[in-house]
Amino acid sequence: MTNGDLEFFLDPSRCIGCQACVQACAECGTHRGQAMIHLEYVHRPTGVQTAPVVCMHCEDPTCARVCPADAIKQDDHGIVHSAAKPRCVACSNCVIACPFGVPKMKTELDLMMKCDMCYDRTSVGKKPMCATVCPSGALYYGRREDIAAMRRETPVNEFQFGRQTVRTKVNMMTAPDMRALPFEVLDFLPWEGKDFDPFELTRAGAPDVAASAVWEDFLPASEEAPARCGSHCQCHP
């Protein structure tokens, strides 16, 4: 039984890239020796900011719906599990279709594996491995009232991918008063053959691309992008 009071809260902007979550993830009993968490450079050419990505455990999981073999199951607690070993045909539909890019295809095993929120631990009231070791609070597992007391950001579990609304079990920390995270793709594409340049956006939000220590040495103060919110933010009306 999962503890109903405890929830997962994700804040990639707090990630310091220490890799502790990656190492701890591989200790989980349901995927021993295999790290399921992703630690991505947000935009490596322009900064060193990293972001952890765990399974968001969608209410209507796209990965499970596109599976041709009924291999991905969601349990009564809303946890979306790794592909069932007897059924997975290693087609990679789930890997390509997941809106968050979470499932991993283990080609050497012919098996899709993914974050299951450390089901061997959370099912008995313990924290997931990654949240246990994260030193910066990018991965937090606890009570909603506790995180509300600690952070100014608000947790949301609804994402708007263009015309598709996705609701999840895992929460994402966003600006205060936001009810859903508007997910934008077009602003981050290299239109007309131009590479994506975060400096040309109105503070696009790549957590440290404009203000990280890496770039401060090279940028004159006048060229630093102002620290203000994106067009969708409602925190500064």
């Binding site: 804040d11 994402m172 508007p182 919110c229 994106g230």
Partner: peptide, 24 residues
Amino acid sequence: HYQDVCPACRRGLLALNQGRTIGR
């Protein structure tokens, strides 16, 4: 179409969109 974006970029876009909303 979101299917034309690779899984690695989707993970990066998640952080970019979150960062945009909170001004980081």
